[in-house]
Design a binder for these strands. Structure first.
Lengths: 340, 340
DNA sequence: TTCACGGATTGAAACGATCTAAAGTTGGCA
DNA sequence: TGCCAACTTTAGATCGTTTCAATCCGTGAA
């Protein structure tokens, strides 16, 4: 029921030793005699002592936290990523300082500034759309290592961890080509986002390699949401001959397209093949199950955490650009083995 | 490029005043003269000073963080909740210490203990399944207020914030009764979880009020996932006459059932009515769109944050049990206005 | 008996902020 | 010129921990 915090001094007083000794016991130093150690440990338990890491960090000039700033927590992809980060940080004895920005660069500035005041050992940033490296620079400073996830920023001397978007889209396209499709669309996404651009590049590259010229009406934009995508379905069929397959920007878009196709009387996986990107949980459970690219967001989170901790302990490491592989997960939405 | 942290003393030295003065400037005290204030502020900017909140908290014996412990971040419901918490905490100048437990009570103990060392002003806990209040007690202590979300724990003197599960299921059931159904099942969930029990109670109450006796085969359990639910669909039709409608434990289960029905040649929303719970984003986008109960997880998060901050500033407030209302969102899955 | 030595313990100064109480500065007015 | 009040500024202790350097103590060697 006591309101006051129990400190080292309370323990020391409680069993007639000095604060210094208690501190040594806490840290398991071999210097203290077995008998005193036991006495002190009993007292710690008895008084319900809890360590004050902030005070310790102050004295030792260390930090035991890492800031994690996420643009969109309600997106399962980022939520999984966050879970992975927290998992790895926790295992290393660090604590996660969370900040969510809801895709607002204003909030992002504020959140970062606020987190910096807690002196994190490092920052993992999944940037809001239209983030500007030049504005990030002054608030992050040069003392704190930062890893940027999922988006490229023009600025250097930060770590980057990005998905292999180009290669992923290429794999999906090759898969559809393999299945006999020639008129393949790239559907969804905002053409000005870096991830959409990269995926389109992979798509274009695969098409070129197959000797197929991409027609302009095969490139359809849409916001990366199910509803928007469903609404854009018609754009695929404005001109004959229409595409018989589509590489979609992501799973949400693919599921939306799937809905749109059904509404138009086409059966996805039968008379139209499509692929997604992300492998969200519903991808496997939808009808038809979605062929898509797994990105392993949780593993990416762990990877980010491990890297930032490494950089925090070795500040002179060179910044690094890491490209995470993606793997194609073939399911029914891309159709049967081989169509005409 | 400097590795050292800039402190108050650096600023003080840099413009020939004392640490105390700089501190006053930082806090916008009216005591300091305009001219010195400007001099100091210039120096702050020039040296790129960043406030050390840990040191300040130590001295002032305050805390500027709240711990948020989440059982399953990859569940959009909890991710939204977390986003809401962070939003409200951030607005109040607090920072979120995140911990995710992945539904493991072991990790939950560890995570809480670790977070306690950072002296949070309060704890918001969404407990892992099978959490035990008696084990939580010693690690949380009595100094730190805690709010428990979404599950009831036998222990007192914590705040509780739960959804009105009973009332929600009752609303859904009444809605289906209204539409003319009599043989209504309760589908999905684990009967030993508190939320499932409460929802079943609401369902039973509405059925009783309508003078209908619930038959045992109308109560079907399943893990709260789409796939499990789809697999359990058959259990609804083992005996004639089969139910014509189902109140589902949650949206995932409802979507699974929807799949299962389709696979059996039934058209959900036409020859079978069903409702969900949670109103996840896909509920509106599925085919047919799902009638379900909105729980407003983000608003709940904000509510939790505001409450814990209030309790942190007034430690003598009585603990409270808050029941969040849920609202019925009627869509096509519960069928047309009125069936026979 | 004295001394050196190793192991165990501790005093006191940090870490970077806050805050009280006291000391400097003004300027006005007698 | 002297004094008081109103402003400004600051010295120094403090928060809870760590850590260096110093002290203490018992023992075996000289």
């Amino acid at each position: 029921m006591s309101r006051r915090r129990i400190t080292l001094s309370d323990i020391a007083a409680g069993c007639g030793v000095s604060r210094a000794t208690v501190s040594l016991v806490l840290r398991g130093s071999p210097l203290v005699a077995k008998s005193t150690r036991e006495r002190v440990e009993a007292e710690l338990k008895k008084q319900g002592y809890v360590y004050n890491r902030a005070a310790a960090n102050l004295r030792r000039r260390t930090s035991s936290s890492v800031a994690l700033v996420i643009n969109d927590l309600s997106n399962p992809f980022f939520a999984e990523f966050a879970a992975g980060v927290d998992e790895a940080l926790g295992a290393a004895g660090y604590v996660t300082l969370l900040g969510s920005t809801n895709e607002s660069t204003e909030r992002q500035q504020k959140v970062l500034a606020s987190l910096m005041e807690h002196d994190p050992a490092g920052i993992i940033l999944s940037p809001a759309e239209h983030s500007d490296g030049d504005r990030l620079m002054p608030v992050v400073g040069t003392r704190t290592p930062m890893l940027v996830f999922n988006r490229e920023l023009p600025h250097a001397h930060w770590d980057f961890l990005v998905l292999d978007n180009r290669r992923g889209a290429q794999l999906a396209t090759e898969h559809l080509l393999e299945r006999g499709h020639r008129r393949i669309a790239f559907f969804g996404g905002h053409a000005d986002s870096s991830s959409c651009r990269e995926r389109r590049q992979g798509y274009a590259q695969a098409m070129r390699a197959a000797g197929i010229e991409v027609e302009p009406q095969w490139l359809v934009e849409s916001a990366p949401t199910r509803l928007e995508a469903a609404a854009q379905t018609a754009a695929l069929f404005v001109r004959d001959p229409a595409p018989t397959a589509a590489v979609c920007y992501n799973d949400a878009v693919a599921l939306g397209l799937s809905l749109g196709l059904t509404a138009r009387g086409r059966r996805p996986g039968h008379d139209f093949a499509l692929t997604g990107f992300d492998d969200i949980p519903e991808a496997a459970a939808s009808l038809p199950p979605l062929t898509t690219l797994s990105t392993g967001p949780r593993a990416r989170g762990r990877q980010a955490a491990e890297r930032i901790l490494m950089r925090a302990s070795q500040p002179d490491l060179e910044p690094m650009r890491m490209v995470a592989p993606v793997t194609l997960n073939v399911r029914a939405s891309s159709g049967p083995e081989r169509v005409a």
